[in-house]
Design a protein around this nucleic acid. Sequence first.
DNA 1: TATGAATGAGAGTTCATTCAT
DNA 2: CATGAATGAACTCTCATTCAT
Lengths: 210, 210, 210, 210
Amino acid sequence: MKRNRKGGYHTLAREKGAKGKESRLRLLHAAAKQFATHGFYTTKVSSIVAEAKLSQPAFYLYFESKDAVFEELVEMFRSRLQAVINDSQLPEQNGAKHSALDQLCHTLQSMFEYFYSHPDLTRIGFYLSPDANDIKLELVQGIEKMLRHEQQNSNFASDIPMNLVSECLVGTIERIVFTQLLPGQITPEELAVNIVRLYVSGLARNQSKV
Amino acid sequence: MKRNRKGGYHTLAREKGAKGKESRLRLLHAAAKQFATHGFYTTKVSSIVAEAKLSQPAFYLYFESKDAVFEELVEMFRSRLQAVINDSQLPEQNGAKHSALDQLCHTLQSMFEYFYSHPDLTRIGFYLSPDANDIKLELVQGIEKMLRHEQQNSNFASDIPMNLVSECLVGTIERIVFTQLLPGQITPEELAVNIVRLYVSGLARNQSKV
Amino acid sequence: MKRNRKGGYHTLAREKGAKGKESRLRLLHAAAKQFATHGFYTTKVSSIVAEAKLSQPAFYLYFESKDAVFEELVEMFRSRLQAVINDSQLPEQNGAKHSALDQLCHTLQSMFEYFYSHPDLTRIGFYLSPDANDIKLELVQGIEKMLRHEQQNSNFASDIPMNLVSECLVGTIERIVFTQLLPGQITPEELAVNIVRLYVSGLARNQSKV
Amino acid sequence: MKRNRKGGYHTLAREKGAKGKESRLRLLHAAAKQFATHGFYTTKVSSIVAEAKLSQPAFYLYFESKDAVFEELVEMFRSRLQAVINDSQLPEQNGAKHSALDQLCHTLQSMFEYFYSHPDLTRIGFYLSPDANDIKLELVQGIEKMLRHEQQNSNFASDIPMNLVSECLVGTIERIVFTQLLPGQITPEELAVNIVRLYVSGLARNQSKV
DNA sequence: TATGAATGAGAGTTCATTCAT
DNA sequence: CATGAATGAACTCTCATTCAT
């Protein structure tokens, strides 16, 4: 968020007692929902607290500013997404490593599962945040690494630069998540499989095209 | 009560003489630039008119409101994009029709050329507008039509639903335009070719994968 | 577009604690005074809050808009006036009902007392409001009813339509209130007596005129 | 008008040629209509010129300001009304002077005829103008003079002060003009007769009341 | 005689944020 | 732990008025 930098945190974060922790959480959820639904600028602090059934000053008991909650949500999305990706390493099986494609497929599926179970955060981190580009860039780089790996195994012949491919794939993911996954048109698994298949095999019946 | 008799200053939208037309255009360009750079909410009417070297009231001489200019810009983008797509039908050559893929490739290239020469509008119509989804949906449908055509010529074996493919492709376009095309990393033609190749042939060297 | 999610700050009209109630009242009084003194359009919200010793946003804590306070004041005038009229029914005395004229006289006096003790509201409801006509019309009808009553007791011979008489009387009231009563030239009681006498007996010494 | 004093006239009034004179008149009529219909503040210069089919600068060719036209219209009303009253002196007939009542009746009728044929001006001068009070005061004084005259002829026994009676009468006139005369419910003559009869004879059948 | 184009000045309203309790 | 009450700072939009032609 570059919206309105204010400088260092002041010592709020009073989330000591149980009640405080709970209030903070309610605010966080309310904020996520409101931001996801209405965007950053049309979400008013007043509606966040209304949804959380707290007063406006209470909001500032737990967050430095409207910008700050937003940033926190984005950060949550970013780090959890990172975690999901990291945790999705397939274990070796019977001493044999999985192919990079299996790995990719599995990683995508894990991501999609995460997106599906956190639609508000996803909307915020992927669409709304000014940092969305950075987040997606990380994704691009992660994917590129996997692709290069497979390429080194000489399974990819494509003369399209892998970086471009990753960009394409991330674009695809981005859209498909919002138009297919979140509305529940398709399961995370199907989506992962379909996308990987498309990117690997392409559409053509005979491989002489273009 | 209802005291307010609105009804506009004097029917708005003068643009009779050349000077007026020019001012309106300056405002339109300034607005496009500001919106594209800062987004809708952080763009102030004051900065638009500053960039256009006019006073604030002048703005309201030519546009009903800040919302209205924005909508006008979006509409421009939408209709011109539509026109570009429609005008990109390849003519028959030597009595033989072009393949749907050539057609797709050519259409993409035309679109990319349009995007490249109108980056501000593109940013507005594709990212910023609440109507962006509608616009992209039109695009999805247009592309799906082309793909189905090719499919009926039985050049596509893919068992992935064509609608899903279109969605994927549009996602790709969307991203690639902003990360590669607009920053000038790649020419419209290269981009079109690469994308079509990727979607048609896929990445794999031998077609037994996944 | 429709970006604006209005929906009010936080449901408005707090006035929970005593302090809030008091502020709201101060604003209401200030508004009444300003409107009465300067009229609707020349009264600025800024002068209302200045008089109430509050900031501009505080105004919108208690009222939806400048229009809204005005309407509220008008409504107060209208309803209280109605109440005054209703409450001014003379009780039976010694088993004998009062004559309609006594009743009229008494009602007028009550009204005048109300006007005299609420000059600002009176100015607003009688002069300034676009609804002033409705309010006066109610008054005309109320008075007409009393007059008809007396007429049925065959105390009135006049061949002037009672409706016209009521209109005349209301016109008289309206003016006399502002030129005589509010400036303190005459007491409510004197005024009521004089007017009724005038309307009942007329000016002429011998009743053969005109 | 105290609205916005601006100081002395500048030398505009270019109404030399016939066309100029006509434009000025069109503006004046348009202004009267707009002011009468919508009031001073809700009438915009832009709507006046729209109605007059001229441009905004043209307006300032003929009038110093919005305030100025309004004042001019009020002044027209005031002076013409004065003239009507002065011209309504009944001539002696057969050497015998008319009674003051006949005179009053005739004067009222003339006034009503004037009002009826100039509804816009009447609305402006009687209702809208801040000077309305002065104008009505003049009227009160004129009427009071007539009444006193009749009183001296000892035709009036009333112990109600003649000044108060005049005030009452003017109030009556004011209202009745707008609710009965201008909407065309009653002719100027009938109105004059009815009012005078009411004020002279009163409502009562037998003169012992109150 | 008239107008297209432009503006200074200000009004109402909103919102994130804080004070006092 | 929480809130009722209040505000500074902006922002959009309007309107009478003028400049240049």
